[in-house]
Design a protein around this nucleic acid. Structure first.
Length: 794
DNA sequence: CAGTGAGCGAGCTTCCGCTTGACTT
């Protein structure tokens, strides 16, 4: 029998700790929370002073059973969950659910996983902090009340199955507000003027005019004046500068950098980090702390001394800046700092590399720079040309790691400037004026939204990725690429006394992997801000957090805090249910010129749509769905009328009709009962028969080259080229070809073997199809409307 | 895969935070 049972939250942590503690200790994991509010109804007895109704969820029953058994056998149970609000609650739930004897329970905490820290914790046990537990209960109950009272209001007033919550609704609101800022943004043009000069020693000097010029006329004037001007260096200033390394990674900064540098989504980053954590390569990946253990700093120090020398070493401690940080863990860092590389998948290696560099760089010297500014006077104009250069005097931490930014208008890399003297005269090579445009604020990426949420103190490291998924799954938001549009701009180039004016074209506003709010997200946000402004307020979380802190300090009774919030909130819910009308974002766009009937836009049962006429009319109204990228609040009458022009009959080809329309997968041509997708550059409203035929022929050619081989032994056995490379098609089923085999060389027998080999996975496939069938039927029960919408958004 | 939009009003949906699997593409 083992005398001591230690319970931690994570199994990976349990494994490491067991090594530190020796034979007398058995370490087990609770796998996070073991109890939660009952799912049916509220799970809270409002009348009984908001008493929570806790249950052990189905998937936690085995864990609880196992822990119970181990606890019974042990003499002392050490509750070693994390040192934060949730961790304290986990300890308390364990105490209750495992029915532990208070005399044999000890609560211990440590926020770094080192032998020293753990042995120290064992020496300093305490009792469960009930105030902190109550703060957690208040947090849990509040979130449940908000979520489970608000969501049903949306089901009735907007659309079934929607959701609202303290965190997700604010996340959507951030996106909606930003989108409107962008839509309302009026871009202004100005002229950026660069002067390219030659020094006395015939070296090039690139400069920029001190001010932007607003109008084309004034720009032209200035460039003309430049022909006769003389250029005189009036000032040369050198200034030293320093750059410091960023703090080691937290969950949020890791997600941001992995997104910018490696292109990972926040969910991908977390999944990869989890793998690295489980294999013992990095410390815990859900953390808000920038703190490194003294052991870690010592290890980093050794690496830096060995690899780069003493000049590069400068150890330091970072302090968290984020609101509401609970700092139960260390920052995310390599477990073994001297391991610069790890085995594993390519992505694991790249993420590890990022973590290693960031951690090491955080303990390295500042980079030293010298900034040079050269000012050049234009003899016949009040403006100056300015050249700025930056020279790295000492690279310091930059040797290892350079933090990237979200800033899109990236400055050109400034380099060394040629040596010049005050008073020197220069000759121009060219003066170039180029029309530029002011930028709207950028759209959010997953990672930049996480950053914003963290700044507002909304959400926790463990919920950033799931929150981002939820708002996409509900259809509030979509992550996608959008093409840019053409924009014209003007340039003036002065060379050898001649000015050349030219008009040019560029593509602007193209977006990649950005979050766009959908109509439903906008309508829900408006509905919630209209009726529940308090909860949608960016400060709501911060203000309730203050009260949770008071509860944790024993200065406030949790049920009283909840009561003070709930009474008016609940009244508001009831009031809204009674008085507010359905909210579908309806707009009247104008009148249909053909019939004189009103044209409206709103969210219909199958998604956003436009409509001619009303239900009350004798003949049915006509409907058309909005296109991708169109929004209810910005669509115009003209755009709406366009939508009714489909399907269009283009004429005949090979004696069969050619019809163009838009389906689930975008615009398509139908001909001879075959479907051909339009290309990005084709518009279903403008496409002509000639182009359609071109596309039909193209598709035919592609289908022809699709077949690699049809076997004589059995015509059903075919080798085909697919989207993901060659595959075997046999009796209406497709089979993957094993890696490394050449498709053309496969024989009939080999193909049969591949199919046989795959039939193992076949079984799982069958069960899965059953599942999907089951899901479909339940979906039907819950109303076909739901599945219709899903198709649209997916 | 490529059209829908009504209707008795059943019975369903939903939160945030703490943890990993067990699944499929």
């Amino acid at each position: 029998m083992i005398e001591n049972l230690v319970i931690v939250e994570s199994p990976a942590k349990a494994k490491t700790i067991e090594k530190f503690l020796g034979k007398d200790f058995q370490v087990k994991s609770s796998f996070g929370h073991i109890r939660d509010l009952a799912k049916k109804n509220l799970g809270i007895e409002i009348e009984k002073n908001y008493e929570p109704q806790y249950i052990v969820p189905e998937d936690k029953k085995a864990v609880v059973k196992d822990l119970k058994k181990a606890a019974k056998e042990a003499k002392i149970v050490w509750l070693a969950s994390d040192e934060d609000r949730e961790g304290e609650a986990i300890a308390w739930h364990l105490f209750k659910v495992l029915e532990l004897d208070p005399k044999k329970v000890k609560r211990i905490v440590f926020h770094e996983i080192t032998k020293e820290a753990i042995q120290n914790a064992i020496k300093n046990p305490r009792i469960i902090d009930e105030n902190l537990v109550n703060a957690q209960q208040a947090r849990r109950v509040l979130d449940r009340l908000v979520g489970f009272e608000l969501s049903p209001v949306l089901w009735k007033k907007v659309k079934p199955s929607l959701s609202a919550g303290r965190v997700q609704s604010v996340a959507v609101k951030l996106l909606v507000e930003r989108e409107r800022e962008i839509l309302n943004f009026k871009s202004e043009s100005y002229f950026k003027i660069t002067g390219h000069f030659k020094t006395n020693k015939n070296e090039e000097l690139k400069t920029e005019l001190s001010d932007r010029i607003k109008t084309s006329d004034k720009t032209k004037e200035l460039v003309e004046r430049c022909i006769k001007a003389s250029y005189n260096i009036i000032n040369v200033v050198k200034k030293p500068g320093k750059k410091s390394p960023a703090a080691p990674f937290t969950t949020s900064t890791l997600q941001q950098e992995a997104s910018r540098k490696l292109g990972f989504s926040v969910a991908q980053t977390m999944a990869i980090a989890q793998k690295l954590y489980e294999s013992g390569k990095i410390t815990y990946m859900r953390t808000d702390s920038v703190n490194l253990s003294s052991m870690a700093i010592g290890a980093a120090k050794n690496v830096i001394l060995n690899e780069f020398g003493e000049k590069y070493l400068k150890t330091r401690n970072f302090k968290t800046k984020s609101k509401g940080a609970q700092e139960a863990h260390e920052a995310i860092r390599p477990t073994f700092m001297d391991q610069q590389n790890v085995s594993g998948t390519d992505r694991e290696q790249r993420l590890y590399d990022l973590i290693w560099k960031r951690t090491i760089a955080s303990q390295m010297s500042e980079a030293e720079l010298e900034k040079t500014t050269i000012t050049i006077d234009i003899s016949n104009d009040e403006h100056n040309f300015i050249a700025t250069g930056e020279v790295l005097k000492f690279d310091g931490f930059l040797k290892v790691y350079i933090e990237s930014t979200d800033d899109e208008s990236e400055e050109e890399t400034k380099g060394l400037l040629p040596a010049v003297n005050k008073g020197e005269n220069l000759k121009y090579d060219s003066i170039v004026a180029i029309e530029r445009f002011t930028y709207s604020p950028p759209r959010y990426t997953e990672a930049s939204l996480v950053k914003k949420l963290e700044e507002l103190g909304i959400g926790r490291p463990s919920t950033y990725a799931p929150t981002i998924s939820t708002i996409q799954n509900r259809g509030y938001v979509i992550k996608e690429d959008r093409p840019g549009r053409d924009r014209n701009y003007v340039t003036f180039v002065l060379e050898k006394g001649q000015i050349k004016e030219s008009k040019k074209k560029e593509i602007t506003g193209a977006e990649k992997n950005k979050l766009f709010p959908n109509d439903i997200g906008m309508v829900v946000t408006d509905f919630l801000t209209d009726n529940f402004n308090e909860i949608l307020n960016y400060n709501f979380t911060a203000s309730v957090e203050e009260e949770f802190d008071q509860i944790a300090n024993g200065n406030l009774i949790w049920s009283k805090m909840i009561d003070k919030f709930y009474k008016p909130f609940h009244k508001n819910v009831e009031n809204t249910l009674e008085t507010s009308s359905r909210s579908v974002g309806e707009r009247i766009l104008g009148e249909d010129p053909n019939t004189g009937k009103p044209v409206t836009a709103k969210i219909g049962p199958y998604g956003p749509m436009v409509q001619i006429g009303t239900k009350e009319d004798d003949d049915k109204p006509r409907f058309a769905s909005l296109q991708r990228g169109q929004l209810l609040e910005t669509i115009t009458l003209e755009e709406a009328l366009e939508l009714f022009k489909l399907p269009r009959d283009l004429g005949q080809y090979e004696d069969k009709k050619v019809v163009v329309s838009i389906g689930r997968f975008g615009p398509y041509i139908r001909h001879d009962s075959k479907f051909v997708s339009l290309k990005k550059e084709d518009s279903p409203y403008k496409i002509e028969l000639d182009r359609a035929i071109e596309l039909i022929e193209e598709k035919r050619e592609k289908d022809r080259s699709k077949t690699i081989k049809i076997f004589e032994e059995d015509n059903d056995m075919q080798l085909l080229n697919g989207r993901w490379g060659p595959y075997i098609a046999y009796k209406k089923k497709n089979y993957r070809i094993p890696k490394g085999t050449k498709a053309e060389e496969l024989t009939f027998k080999q193909c049969l073997e591949i199919i046989k080999g795959n039939s193992k996975t076949e079984k799982t496939k069958k069960t899965s199809t059953k599942n999907t069938v089951a899901k479909k039927t339940t979906a039907k029960k819950s109303g076909t409307k739901k599945s219709g919408i899903k198709k649209k958004t997916s």
